[in-house]
Simulated assay, not measured.
Amino acid sequence: MNPTIQDVAKAAKVSIATVSRVLNNQPGFSEKTKARVLQAIEDLGYQPNAVARGLVNRNTGTIGVLFPSVSGLLSAEILFGIEARAHEEGYSVIVCNTAANPEKTLRYIQVLSEKRVDGLIFVSEEVTEDYYKAFERMGVPVVLILTQSYKYPLPYVKVDDAHAAYTATRHLIECGHEKVGMLSGNPEELLAGVGRIEGFKRALLEAGLSYSDSYVETSTSFTFEDGLANFPKLMNRHPDITAIFAASDEIAVGAVSAAYKLGISIPNDVSIIGYDNLKLAETSVPPLTTISQPFQRMGDKATEMVLEMKKIMM
């Protein structure tokens, strides 16, 4: 049976309140008493409950992270950055996979609230009114990654998708390509769909090239399977395309695989540039040119912001 705070108090011959003050660095005891309590804790192997201590010092040493999916390389990179900074600062991380399901997301927010996490990092989903109200009820710092909200005053860490897509497309144009297509995600998706299409379109028009929606093949997500399925559709519709901007590295690698099956040489027949700079880009054959998103740095920065905001609130 695990020792309790009562066991520590009995062994140290002090009150439970004194043990609590020692654990939470509060005044009201001598150095001799502190040494006796700490020795009793060591002898008994007592480990104070983080949540119980958090009721006193308002700090449980935990940060909650909400992902719409934890299976992708993107999530792994972000989580690496979050966990590394959290560990450096003496914090633990609780990860929740919401599957982009509103009911599941709200349930996880409630769970994290009950666990009294010190802050929350919300990744790659639109902030709805229900989510924001739940954040307000928690009363802890919330930082967004790969998303932002124009309606609600929440700090965020993300790149400018439109500018990044513009840069990728501009690179293809500067390489001499005049017939450029795009393999996109969901065109109605505000977080990553709309901006990347807008950047692609702007680069073409500024270069004096024609733009048509038919040169953009859209899908519901940003996966390898999307690239595999949609590359043939785009090439069948516009066989004169010599370069493609893919809205994610996974889409790009799927397109490379589809091209191989069709006997199309990459990059000799069609050049492809991706978006994200995941490890996947390095392992692609041929290696994938891509626009980098610093996911680990994003995770690190978001964690730093949460902890700084927590200090201000204490």
Results as ranks from 00 to 15, higher is better:
Arg116Thr: 06
Ile121Cys: 04
Lys310Asp: 06
Ser92Thr: 14
Leu55Gly: 05
Thr167Tyr: 08
Ala243Trp: 01
Glu89Cys: 13
Gly45Leu: 05
Thr303Trp: 08
Thr242Met: 03
Lys104Gly: 02
Leu154Arg: 05
Pro239Ser: 03
Glu174Tyr: 02
Ala168Gly: 06
Lys115Gly: 12
Gly45Trp: 08
Asn57Ser: 07
Thr33Asp: 04
Glu88Val: 02
Leu154Pro: 09
Phe135Gln: 04
Ala11Val: 09
Ile145Gln: 09
Asp130Thr: 05
Gly195Ala: 06
Arg53Lys: 08
Ser271Arg: 08
Ile41Tyr: 03
Asp226Phe: 01
Ile109Trp: 10
Met305Asp: 11
Asn2Ala: 12
Pro155Ile: 12
Glu88Ala: 14
Thr169Cys: 02
Leu288Arg: 14
Gly254Trp: 07
Val14Trp: 02
Tyr166Leu: 10
Pro102Asp: 12
Ala247Val: 04
Phe222Trp: 13
Ser219His: 14
Leu190Glu: 05
Met138Ser: 09
Gly81Trp: 11
Thr147Trp: 06
Leu191Pro: 00
Ile251Ser: 04
Leu154Asp: 06
Phe222Ile: 12
Gly193Leu: 08
Pro68Asp: 14
Ser20Asn: 03
Ile109Leu: 12
Met314Cys: 05
Lys32Gly: 05
Ser248Ala: 15
Leu79Glu: 04
Ala162Trp: 00
Ser149Asn: 00
Ala302Phe: 07
Leu74Trp: 11
Val180Leu: 03
Asn24Trp: 01
Ala246Cys: 12
Asp43Ala: 14
Thr218Asp: 10
Ser113Lys: 15
Gly61Trp: 12
Lys310Thr: 02
Ala302Asn: 07
Leu280Trp: 08
Tyr166Phe: 14
Ile264Ser: 05
Ala247Asp: 04
Ala164Asp: 05
Glu304Ser: 12
Val93Pro: 02
Asp276Gly: 09
Leu209Gly: 03
Ala100Asp: 15
Asp276Trp: 06
Ser248Pro: 07
Val306Gln: 07
Asn2Ile: 04
Ile94Asp: 10
Asn268Glu: 15
Gly274Lys: 12
Phe135Glu: 10
Val253Gly: 09
Leu278Cys: 10
Glu189Arg: 09
Glu188Leu: 14
Ile78Cys: 08
Gly274Tyr: 13
Arg107Cys: 02
Gly119Val: 05
Leu228Met: 02
Thr167Asp: 13
Gly193Lys: 09
Val285Ser: 15
Ala52Phe: 02
Tyr132Thr: 06
His171Thr: 15
Thr169His: 06
Glu88Asp: 12
Glu217Leu: 01
Glu206Lys: 02
Met309Leu: 15
Thr283Ala: 10
Leu73Gly: 15
Ala203Glu: 04
Ile16Ser: 01
Leu191Ser: 10
Phe67Asp: 13
Thr283Gln: 11
Met182Cys: 12
Glu31Phe: 01
Tyr260Phe: 12
Tyr211Gln: 00
Ala246Val: 05
Ile273Met: 14
Met298Asp: 07
Leu55Thr: 02
Lys179Asp: 10
Val253Cys: 03
Ala246Ser: 11
Val256Ala: 14
Glu77Ala: 15
Asn268Gln: 13
Arg85Gly: 03
Ala207Thr: 02
Glu89Arg: 15
Ser75Ile: 05
Arg21Gly: 00
Thr167Ser: 13
Met138Arg: 11
Ala100His: 11
Ala207Arg: 03
Val127Leu: 05
Ala40Asp: 06
Pro187Gln: 09
Tyr260Ile: 11
Tyr91Met: 10
His238Ser: 01
